[in-house]
């Protein structure tokens, strides 16, 4: 076992993990953060996307020990005081989900896209989401939601708004 210290959604954790533990399993099984889901076995689907030091990663393809000393934000860390993050709100408003399975990862990656390109073209949105698969929506309303969120200025705010060492600029929206 190896001891790791990780900040997740603004809370500091220190835990013993087996080195082979995947970050997604640490989040779900040890921290109970089941908002982040597993959708494939090949790191293709993007459902497990979280932010590691403010950049999107597929948490099924990162070891928990690699996150030692780093800052993780999951879908569960986005809402503030009962208010949805603008990207979550936009997905809700635009009907950007059906079964919802891809949604946690889709939202985390959509925020990453806006962090890189605050005012993206439709193509930049589609290319930015190429590592996230959705079997229901046909992507159309997802693209609309990202456009709405961009209009609302949702370019930052993946960080849980604590003093943790996120590399994201700006204040949480």
């Amino acid at each position: 076992m190896t001891r790791i210290s990780v900040t997740v959604d603004g809370v500091d954790y220190s835990d013993e993990v087996e080195p082979r533990t995947l970050l997604v399993h640490y989040l779900r099984e040890q921290l109970g953060k089941t908002g982040t889901v597993v959708g494939c076995d090949t790191s293709n689907c993007g459902a497990c996307t979280v932010h590691l030091d403010g950049r999107s990663v597929k948490s099924c393809n990162v070891l928990a020990v690699q996150a030692d000393g780093h800052d993780v934000t999951t879908i569960e860390g986005l809402a503030k005081d009962g208010e949805l993050h603008p990207m979550q709100q936009a997905f809700h408003d635009c009907h950007a989900l059906q079964c919802g399975y891809c949604t946690p990862g889709m939202i985390m990656q959509a925020i990453d896209v806006l962090n890189d390109t605050p005012d993206p073209s439709e193509e930049q949105i589609r290319v930015g989401l190429e590592g996230n698969l959705c079997r229901c929506t046909g992507y159309h309303n997802i693209v609309k939601a990202v456009q709405q969120a961009a209009g609302a200025g949702a370019t930052t705010g993946s960080s849980a708004g604590t003093t943790s060492g996120s590399t994201l600029g700006g204040e949480p929206v």
């Binding site: 993007g46 996307t49 999107s56 990663v57 597929k58 990656q109 896209v113 190429e130």
Partner: peptide, 9 residues
């Protein structure tokens, strides 16, 4: 190469 998440790692 791949997608943004994979390019971050």
């Amino acid at each position: 190469v791949a997608d943004p998440q994979i390019r971050h790692r």
